[in-house]
Nucleic acid binder design. Structure first.
Lengths: 126, 126
DNA sequence: TTCATATTTCGACATATTTCGAATTATAGG
DNA sequence: CCTATAATTCGAAATATGTCGAAATATGAA
């Protein structure tokens, strides 16, 4: 029985659609790259920011940005919470973990080998 | 310097767009689930198949299927090669590995912890 | 060559997406 | 209460996507 046996295609399709737009992908990557590898991030610096701050990242109209954030939030990739006048956004790390898991078939002891010739496929380009 | 410093947004957006459609996602998962975990797949069974075989997976017109395969191939997710009358398709495992790597920020010794509170974010739902 | 099978290309159409500006809502502060 | 700031909702317009059927292309076999 494959690990993809009972996969929710609708859900994952929505997640991937959320990051299929370059602007939304930029937002996600902005959140994912909050830390410099090997260093400890300053608390409160980076991972949480308000909508307006994200706007400087994209150069689109506020209404457009709002729409994109709604998509990301609807797909469960980011969290949003009002804090005074502003609305704070931060990464939904569990959702990212789920996506990472989705692609981790290669961790399978058999299928996960660099070459998958045991599966009957020669990994040559066309 | 973040690992996302020099990321090709256009490329990854295209990859995610390719699997943002439920039908195309089904095709990808079909290829990814060729093996049953812990077992060795029969050579020639599963991972390589012709376009027609994939059609039974989707119930769409052949022309539609062809369009979807073109998208997946254009995004570099599958390989295609003519073999007689048929055209064989199989997973581009290196492309999948690249996507997996994209989401593996959590493998970072600091950022990769289950809770990312060190980043200033409390992972609470809104 | 002629026919059958496998797949793609083309043109068309309905629907979805991206984007904007204007108007609206929510909150903070005088 | 009034004003300013932050963000969303609401049309509207341009573009992209998903789908089909018909026609075209590629290959193999009679």
């Amino acid at each position: 029985m494959s690990k993809y046996e009972n996969i929710d295609f609708t859900h994952y399709a929505r997640v991937f659609k959320a990051i299929s737009n370059p602007n939304r992908l930029k937002i996600l990557v902005y959140f994912m790259s909050c830390c410099e590898p090997g260093s400890v991030c300053t608390v409160g610096d980076g991972p949480r920011c308000c909508v307006g701050e994200l706007g400087s990242l994209l150069s689109v109209a506020p209404s457009t940005l709002s729409h994109h954030l709604k998509e990301l939030h609807g797909a469960g990739l980011i969290n949003m919470q009002r804090r005074g006048q502003q609305i704070e956004c931060w990464l939904a790390t569990d959702a990212i973990a789920a996506v990472r898991e989705f692609f981790s078939f290669a961790a399978d002891p058999v299928c996960g080998q660099a070459d998958n010739s045991h599966c009957g496929g020669k990994d040559e380009a066309e």
